[in-house]
Amino acid sequence: MAKIKGRLEIDKERCKGCAVCLTACPFSILELGREVNSKGYNYPRVVDLERCTGCASCATVCPDSCITVYRTKQL
């Protein structure tokens, strides 16, 4: 069976740390990191990339359009 793997690129400088992406992820693979960007907001990081399917739910709900999603199908 083909396995679909996702990859996220997060624009941490544009992020405002609202955490809406965390709750949108069906696999809960995102969390807010301890580091802050130049605006002083904590931005999300991927804690379990293996489980990402590239469904783009996080990017779809992101109000500041900070997330770019890529997907690879592995046969």
Binding site: G6, T60, S65, T68, V69, Y70, R71, K73
Partner: peptide, 13 residues
């Protein structure tokens, strides 16, 4: 397999 783009910031933003 090649990596495909699924979602990015809309071009008009």
């Amino acid at each position: 397999m090649a990596e495909e783009l699924v979602y990015k910031k809309p071009r008009l933003l």
